[in-house]
Structures are given as C-alpha cells and as structure tokens.
Design a protein around this nucleic acid. Structure first.
Length: 447
DNA sequence: TTTTGAGTTGTTCGA
DNA sequence: GTCGAACAACTCAAA
C-alpha cells in the first residue's frame, strides 16, 4: 500500500470527510496543512488566530489516533509536491476548493505534482458549485429557484468512517505559530467544539429559529458560521441532523451554497459589480467621507444599533446577521460610501469571513448583486432597532454609555433632554440621506 | 420566441 | 394605532 497525502484546507475535521475516506482507501495517510503566505497576508488578525487554534485542535485529535498534523510553510505548489516526493505518496487528496484563488492554486499544484494525481473528493458545500443548474444548463442568479432545484437534487448521506480506523503516516513539520495579536474574544475552535455547538443549537434554539433569528438581543442564532468557514463541520452533517426540522435554517444553509456557486460561475464578482450598471453609482470621497468611514468602523456614528454591532465586530469577530444588514445599509445608503470599503472591513475582522458570503451579502445590500434589492429598500436604523431590539438589551450590552436609557429612549438618544456624556451625536440625518440615496439611484437609472 | 409571474430580509404616506 | 398602497422598471426562470 502506498501512502497518500491528505492536504487540509477549509475542512479541518476528521469526521464526515469524504476526501479523508478516499485517501485512507489508498493506504497510510499523511495529514498536511500548508501555511500559505499569500492567504495569510490577506487573512491577518482574528481569523488567522482562529485558524491556528483550529489547527491545534485538529493536531490533538490526530495524535489521539496515532497521527499528527504536518504543518509546512510556503507556496503550496512547492510544498505539496516536495512532501509527496518525500514519502513517495501515490496520491494527494483534497476537498475541492471553488473560490477563485483556491481553484487557481489547485491547478498550479496539480501541474507541479506531475505524475502524482491530485484527487478532489467532496467540497465544503452540501451541493458543490456547478451541480445545480437551470434546465438550460446555465447557472442560477436568483435564490428562490436555486433553492427549489437544490432541495430537489438533495445531498449525499454523511460518511460514518472513523478516524480510529485509519492508518496515519506522521511526518515532521513546523510548529503551529503563536496566535497573531488580536483583542477579539474568539469562540472555541475545532471539530469537537463545532459538534458541541451544533448539538447545543439542535437541542434548543432551533425550535425558535424562524421566529427569533432576527433578534440580536436574544442571540438565538446558531453561531455555526465560523465552524462552517473552517470546515470543522460539514453542512451535509447538519442537514442530515435537521431532517424535516428547521426549514428556515435549511434555507440559510442553502444561501451558503448559492453564493458559492455565484462566485464560482462569476469569479470577478468577488470584487467587481455583479450588476455592472451600478458601478456608475456616485459615492462620497474625501476627508469627510474618510472620517465617516472611520466613525462607522469604530462604532461612533451616533446610531446606537449601528455602533453596537460595529463594536461587537471588533470585540468578538462576529456579528448578528440582521445587524450586519443594518450596518451595511447604513454605510452605503446613509454615508454614501462604496460597499467594497465595508466589505473589506468585515473581512478584516470577521472570524467567519468567507469571500462568497461576504462580498455577495454586501452586493445584495448595496443593490449591486444577485436578487438586487429594490432601490427604495433602505433600512431605517431606528425602526430596525425598535423592531429587533425592542428592550434595547443588545445596545446596552455593546454601548455602555447608553446603559441608563430606557427601552423607549435608547435607540434615539438624541431625543432625550439630557443625553448621556461621551456618546456622539448622529453623524448624519437619516431622512436627508435616505432622500439623497434615492436621488443618486435615479442618476444611475436616468442614463 | 414570447409571455408571464416572481423576485430574503423595507419604509413612508395617507386613509 | 393599523392597514394597504405606492415606491420603477428590470431581469430572471420557466412554460
């Protein structure tokens, strides 16, 4: 039996892992992770800190089964073939990466491997990009019909193979680096933590998910995004556990597959406008725009729900989905700043930051993406706050300056006779900026 | 080819 | 306070 390499990327787990199963079929498995300088340069901060923790957890898991995680640093097209040669591996196994950088990288590695095949089995998605297409063979651009076709197609059953039954081939590598400096409080990393979080969610909040998922104060969402981002759990495992339960949650999992396939079919949409006409939108630039962007980033806009969320991002690397939309709408429609600026800030700080979800979530809010929002759909930060944080508990938690205000006052601190010290006045007037946004949209349309 | 119905997440205004 | 209409026109998916 010849050895093979399992090259881990965004699949940091040992259960329900088809590529691992495929590698183990061939013989002893060398578990490899490559610290790719290109990716790490982009991915500094909390997400890298989380990655290192997840790698440590994976290494521990492997060691408990007689293996070890071999960590190398460098360019994968050099590192992977070198290791394959060192252990005279017959095959290199991976879960397929469909993102623009990863797909190109894998083609380079495949070429550099020469006679040793790069075997792609499975992907981080319930249904891989390219598998769900319209009847005419083109990819979907609208979510709902995609969801119907995706549901109809279905997904594979989870693999039940056991890491204890695999013959491991440990090879020396480098130590997992120390965490980069980050002040964010990160969730626990690793497959065991992911499975525990999932079990916890299934045991309780899933029952109220549809009713309460928009309430940041109740914090009743699953928090699975980061585990999915790093592949500590596979969505197929989750869908199987869900069965008929949680249709609203299943839909959310489908969104992840939807945006992955959009990015796969339109790789330029990671940074370019999915709706090209919208690239003509007029945005603010200059000193005042820079200051407003900075106020937004720091959570000092004077709009409590916006500031709460932006501070939560810096403190924890995570934001509630509803509030992600509120702050995104605020950046684009109230501050008239380009969505790409907000998308970059999110990617810099989100532990679950995923290119497809992030860029297309932003494009959707900005009205430049798939399912573009009608031009008149502009979030009112006060109304949204009152609706989804009715007691103000969420704001109180992240904006302590406003702690003493009542539920009635807290989302409009400027209306209080004696506003609390240290909290900024609103940097814009929502009603004015809403009209300005509508006017700028008309400019784009008028051409 | 043409037609038809639909499109995650909203807000305001006037009755 | 509640409710329905209006807010444009376009693109997409499927028949």
């Amino acid at each position: 039996m010849t050895a093979s390499v399992l090259w881990f990327r965004r699949d940091l787990r040992l259960r329900d892992h088809p590529a691992l199963d495929a590698a183990a079929q061939a013989g002893p498995v060398c578990a490899l992770f490559v610290l790719d300088d290109v990716l790490l340069k982009v991915d500094e901060g909390p997400r890298t800190a989380y990655l290192y923790r997840s790698l440590r957890a994976l290494d521990e898991d492997l060691r408990s089964h007689g293996g070890r995680l071999t960590v190398k640093r460098g360019r994968p097209e050099n590192v992977v073939p070198r290791l394959a040669k060192e252990i005279t591996a017959g095959e290199v196994h991976v879960s397929e990466d469909f993102a623009p950088y990863g797909a190109a990288r894998d083609r380079r590695v495949e070429k550099a491997l020469g006679d040793v095949p790069l075997v792609r089995t499975g992907s981080p998605y319930a249904v891989s990009p390219g598998q769900v297409l319209k009847k005419d063979g083109d990819p979907f651009k609208v979510f709902t019909p995609f969801y119907r076709a995706w549901s109809e197609r279905g997904w594979h059953r989870p693999s039940t193979s056991n890491p204890a039954g695999i013959s491991w081939y440990p090879v020396d590598g480098i130590d997992i680096p120390h965490d980069p400096r980050t002040t964010a409080e990160l969730p626990e990393a690793g497959e065991a933590a992911a499975l525990a979080a999932w079990k916890d969610f299934l045991g309780g909040d899933i029952e109220h998910y549809n009713a309460e998922r928009n309430r940041p104060d109740l914090d009743s969402t699953s928090h699975m995004s980061v585990h999915l981002k790093f592949g500590e759990i596979h969505p197929r495992t989750m869908l199987a556990d869900l069965g008929r339960r949680g249709p609203a949650y299943r839909r959310q999992l489908c969104w992840r597959d939807f945006y992955a396939q959009v990015l796969h079919h339109w790789p330029d949409s990671a940074h370019g406008y999915f709706q090209p006409a919208m690239a003509r939108m007029r945005y603010d630039t200059g000193k005042r725009a820079d200051e407003r962007l900075e106020a937004w980033k720091q959570g000092r806009t004077g709009f409590p729900i916006v500031d709460a969320d932006m501070r939560q991002l810096l403190a924890t690397g995570w934001m509630h989905n509803r509030v992600r939309m509120i702050v995104a709408s605020f950046l684009v429609k109230d501050l008239h700043l380009e969505w790409t600026l907000g998308a970059r800030h999110f990617m810099d700080h989100l532990v679950d930051g995923d290119l497809a979800n992030n860029q297309h979530g932003w494009q959707w809010t900005a009205g430049t993406g798939t399912d573009p929002s009608p031009y008149f759909r502009i979030f009112n930060p006060v109304l949204q706050a009152k609706k989804f944080d009715p007691e103000g508990a969420y704001v109180r938690r992240w904006v302590p300056e406003l702690k003493s205000l009542s539920a009635k006052e807290i989302h409009e601190p400027w209306s209080v006779d004696d506003p609390p010290d240290g909290y900024p006045a609103p940097i814009v007037d929502h009603d004015t900026e809403r009209k300005e946004s509508l006017a700028r949209y008309q400019e784009v349309r008028a051409r």
